[in-house]
Write a protein that binds this DNA or RNA. Structure first.
Length: 288
DNA sequence: CAGCGTACCTGTAAGC
DNA sequence: TGCTTACAGGTACGCT
């Protein structure tokens, strides 16, 4: 959704100036804010791409190798398209203005977990810039809704791993786009415990998990989608999804909508997991 | 090297 | 009422 909005609003436009208002927003850019700006001013955006939780804008800069502005929105990040005269948002971190003096792109991020990087794109034939992955996210796997996602390869990768299924689902190098909430929802649907060892997963179980992940992502996408009909690119695609469809996440003490057993909350990696103790019993050999 | 724990940050909500 | 503490989230890095 955000990607589509970006594509529509930013494609073909040339960056006039960049203002980095908060150094933390570019902390993963090695050259710092000055270099971040220098590398993209004068560059023209070719489109907008996404992989997992990352978005990027491939840019052609005259006299330079193509680059990409790579964004991770973290939990609270937004990319907004605002008139230049619009008052600054409280948590405005980075501002991109364009030579056409139209709407500027603003990166707004309350909790500062999001980050922007200017990255190189390897081995580029100019015509294929849009197909290349920026270097910094070369390790990010496809998401399960990607037509090129390989279900069988994931199954084999899981069987090779020695960890719990929830940890694996959160590992963006195995499968991308899944966070704590989607993981809990998918595991509830697939009736699997978070600590189920990945090396013992059957083909049918992997298929069940993948099917569940796809259902959750599709539902979230459908409900989050409403937010982008306004003139800005909104990101908080979960707001609508939160209200209705959650079956496990955040429902501690509430009855499981399949069997009525009370959902429990358990500590997991310094945060929480939610599950139905009856539908998702702890496996004899658990890997958390 | 694979797997696991933790720091990073800030607003909200619960607890005293 | 006002202060303190816990919690939420994804990633990168350090340790075993």
């Amino acid at each position: 959704m955000v990607r589509r909005g970006l594509e529509r609003w930013v494609s073909g436009r040339t960056v006039a100036d960049v203002e980095v208002g908060h150094p933390r927003a570019v902390r993963r850019h090695l050259g710092g804010g000055v270099d971040f700006t220098a590398r993209i001013v004068g560059g023209t955006a070719l489109g907008a791409r996404r992989r997992g939780k990352y978005l990027w804008l491939p840019l052609v800069v005259p006299g330079q190798a193509p680059v990409a502005v790579v964004a991770h929105l973290g939990m609270s990040g937004q990319l907004l398209l605002r008139p230049p005269e619009a008052p600054f948002e409280k948590h405005l971190r980075v501002r991109f203005s364009f030579t056409d003096r139209g709407r500027e792109l603003r990166f707004v991020d309350q909790r500062t977990f999001g980050a922007l990087v200017v990255d190189t794109i390897d081995d580029v034939v100019a015509a294929h810039v849009l197909d290349q992955l920026p270097r910094s996210i070369a390790h990010i796997a496809r998401d399960p809704l990607d037509p090129a996602f390989d279900d069988d390869a994931l199954h084999r990768a899981l069987r090779r791993r020695h960890t719990g299924i929830k940890r694996a689902l959160l590992d963006q190098s195995l499968v991308s786009g899944i966070g704590n909430i989607y993981a809990d929802e998918a595991l509830w649907r697939a009736r699997l415990h978070a600590a189920r060892p990945t090396e013992t997963l059957t083909r049918a179980e992997t298929a069940r998990v993948l099917g569940a992940v796809r259902e959750v992502m599709t539902a979230a996408l459908a409900q989050g989608g409403t937010s982008f009909d306004s003139l800005y690119v909104n990101v908080n695609g979960q707001s609508g999804y939160f209200e209705r469809s959650l079956e496990a996440y955040g429902r501690a003490g509430a009855p499981c909508r399949r069997c009525g057993t009370l959902i429990v909350r358990e500590p997991f990696m310094n945060r929480s997991s939610y599950r139905c103790p009856r539908c998702q019993p702890r496996p004899r050999r658990a890997r958390l």
